[in-house]
Design a protein around this nucleic acid. Structure first.
Lengths: 196, 196
DNA sequence: CATTTCATGTAATCCGTTACATGATTCC
DNA sequence: GGAATCATGTAACGGATTACATGAAATG
């Protein structure tokens, strides 16, 4: 197979179909929003487009539900070729991670505006990341945290949710670290403002 | 003015021109690579394109150096309108930060491949982030860290800049946190593997 | 009876990256 | 003499997002 062009969403969809069983594009969207926040998201148009692509690759199969009174609903299921692709994915090299955050650029060039502007941005960022942290903590309660010893692991194999738990643990640590930086920096900026 | 469409690179260029004085696209590229790694980067084509755009906006002016024997060199300088735009930028709301990292998706769906695969990815990520941390520590020495009380080197023209130091502090803390997560997760994965 | 939810898709735009194209000068 | 550096750009592609388009059924 000469499969060029697979993206993160390719495998996100395959993995969810494998985990959840046959699903519609609509189901997938809702699943992504609930389970993958905030490190992965997709919009409907992207999901529907990718499902068509996966269908043509033979990695998913599809049937249309006729039983329901609801709008036409297409159920997609992963095929064996899809499962093989999902497994092969884990052998491929990782893409480089990217953290894009305009606040860093604003901070770096903060002196080109009155100091209260940057201070206001920091305060807004604190509100935003406090909300993110609250969301993540709800996730920890839901999925556990294997590194912090929060619930549910089997002794023989990795528990189902342990993998997700590792990611959620990262999210929580990240948000806490970010908030600490915001608060320390804010204090620094406010102190400098008074001295200057 | 009905001009939509200004991006981070717009302001990165304006800020650097304000800070460094008149510069060529080539200068800007080198400056970005040295001063903004790893949270901001740009390729030549993007920089040249943006410079043309800024010229048409009247935010920069340009003259061609005829004195040199080198290839034609265009020197761009920020205008007053450019300075105004740079200041106005700081009043605008922040875009939402995005951390894109394929490792999270790989981890979440780690059970769809033999455990040694994910373990190998984690080991590769450790090597990568150790290198990132080493780069950042060199930055700290060059630019200082106002939160940790590390002074900037006087040899650096931009060294007075505490704003940049705040960003570099974040970078270092981020890489340290990331590495800790990688090592803890790796130990967890390896332990679970032996039990199974 | 109005809003939300269910349900799928097309079209356009946008931003970033890669590939391509050129050529002089300096350094080893 | 060959490699690296200086220096500027065009063309094409590609993934992600936004806007647009439609409409039934359940919920309050």
């Amino acid at each position: 197979m000469e499969e060029r062009s697979t993206y993160p969403i390719t495998y996100a969809i395959l993995a969810f179909l494998e985990e959840w069983g046959p699903s519609s594009g609509y189901d997938l969207k809702r699943g992504f929003d609930h389970a993958l926040i905030p490190f992965f998201s997709a919009v409907y148009s992207q999901i529907y487009h990718e499902l068509h692509r996966l269908y043509e690759l033979g990695w998913v199969e599809m049937d249309i539900e006729t039983t329901s009174q609801r709008p036409a609903r297409k159920r997609y299921a992963i095929t064996q070729a899809g499962r093989d692709a999902l497994t092969a994915w884990h052998s491929q090299p990782l893409e480089k991670p990217q953290l894009r955050d305009e606040l860093f650029l604003r901070t770096m060039f903060g002196r080109f505006a009155p100091s209260h502007e940057l201070i206001a941005r920091f305060k807004e960022a604190i509100v935003y990341h406090e909300q993110q942290l609250a969301n993540v903590k709800a996730h920890v309660l839901a999925h556990g945290d294997p590194l912090a010893g929060v619930p549910a692991q089997k002794t023989d194999v990795l528990a189902h949710d342990d993998y997700r738990g590792l990611v959620v643990h990262f999210e929580q640590t990240f948000e806490e670290m970010y908030l600490q930086w915001l608060r320390e920096s804010l204090a620094f900026l406010e102190k400098q403002g008074k001295n200057g």
